[in-house]
Simulated assay, not measured.
Amino acid sequence: MTQKTPPKIEFPCPDYPIKVLGEAGDVLQSLVIEVMTKHAPGFDPERITIKDSGKGRWQSVTVFITATGIEQLEAIHNDLRANPVTKIVL
């Protein structure tokens, strides 16, 4: 078998999606906005999409940023995961 390498991201990468899954509510939404404002200034909060799970216990929050580098993406991931309301960051 040949080993496949993941595709390379060319930076800056406009419209880079970040999806955060966690406990439904204002805390998750506020956290996502706070982290994006800190690490991706200029992101458009009007493009945030929020989807509730079938029973409403969980939410997915998707934002689109201009990714500027691996360091930025790692910082976003680390800040989002530091809060217990967050379960998964994609």
Rank of each mutant, 00 (worst) to 15 (best):
F64V: 00
C13W: 10
I76A: 03
T62D: 01
A24L: 05
K38R: 14
E34W: 07
K4A: 08
T86C: 14
V35W: 04
K87L: 09
V32G: 02
I33M: 13
D15V: 10
V85A: 07
T49G: 02
L73H: 01
K55V: 11
P84A: 15
D52S: 13
N78E: 14
I18Q: 01
A75W: 00
K8F: 03
D52E: 10
T37I: 05
P45D: 12
T49F: 01
V61H: 00
G42C: 09
Q29W: 04
E71A: 12
S60Y: 01
F43R: 01
I76T: 01
I88A: 13
F43L: 02
V35R: 05
P17I: 01
A40I: 04
R47M: 03
E71H: 06
K51P: 01
W58F: 13
P41L: 13
E46K: 15
M1S: 14
K4I: 04
E46L: 08
R57C: 06
P12I: 03
V85W: 08
E23I: 10
S53P: 01
E74T: 08
Q59K: 06
N83I: 03
H77A: 05
K19H: 02
D52H: 10
K8A: 06
G25K: 14
I33W: 02
I50C: 13
L21A: 15
D52Y: 06
F64E: 04
A40C: 13
K38S: 11
L73E: 02
Q29R: 13
F11V: 07
K87R: 13
I88M: 14
K51L: 08
A67N: 06
T86Y: 06
I50A: 07
P6K: 15
V35Q: 06
E23M: 12
I50P: 01
G22C: 09
T68E: 14
K55D: 12
T37C: 05
I33D: 07
R47Q: 05
I70S: 11
G56P: 05
R47S: 07
P7F: 04
S60F: 01
G56V: 07
E34S: 14
S30I: 02
Q3S: 10
Q59R: 04
C13F: 15
